[in-house]
Amino acid sequence: MQSQNSTNIGLDNSAAPRLWVTRHADYLYKYALTRINDQELARDLVQETFLAGLERLQKFEGKSTERTWLTAILKNKIIDVYRKKASAFVNEPGMTSAEQETDDFFEPDAHNWKPNHRPAEFGIEQTDLLESKEFELILQKCLRKLPSLWLSVFTMKHLDDEPTDIICNDLRISPSNFWVIIHRAKLSLRECLQKNWI
C-alpha cells in the first residue's frame, strides 16, 4: 500500500477506490438522479459505476480527475438506459404515436389549436419563475409526467447540450423521431404548467 498516504491527501493522480464512496457517491447519485428520475435505478447505476471503475482501474491514467473519470462511466450507463427506452419506443407498432398524439392539441384538418388547448399567457412569457419555489415544484411535477423517452431526449439536450446528431446516434433514433419527441414533450410540458399554475 505504498500509495495509500499520498492518495489519502490527494497529492497524486492515482485512483483511491477505497475513498470513492466518501468522495463521490453523493455526487454521482445526484448526477444520475437528475438525469433519470428514478431513485432505485440511480442507486444501482452508482453501484455499477463503482464496480466498472474497479475493473478498469488500470486504465485510469490520472489525465482527468477521478470524479470526471467516474462520471464518464456513469454517463455511458445512463445513455444505455435511455437507449433501452428509445428502442422500446421506436419498436412500438406505429412509432408515429408521438406524432398522432400531437393531434390532441391541434384540429385534425386545419392543424390549428383546439380551443381548450390554446396557450394563454400565464406569467412566464418573458421572465422565468424559478425563484418561485411553488412554480419550480410544478415544473418538476410536470417534467415527471413526461414519458421517459421524451424526458431522456430533453435532458440530454438541455442538461448536457449534446448536439442532435449525437443524441440520435446514442439513442439510435432518427432525426425526424427526435424532433417529433421534442415537439410533443414541449407541448405537454407547456400545457401542464399552464394548467397547474393558473
Binding site: D26, Y29, K30, D128, E136, L139, H158, K186
Partner: peptide
C-alpha cells in the same frame, strides 16, 4: 413560453448539487 421553459430547465438542471439529495 417555450423559450422561457427551455431557459428554466437549463437553469434548474445546471444548479449546483442540492445538499439534500444524498445516498
Amino acid at each position: 413560453q417555450s423559450a422561457t421553459i427551455n431557459r428554466m430547465i437549463r437553469n434548474m438542471l445546471h444548479r449546483p448539487v442540492d445538499e439534500n439529495i444524498k445516498l
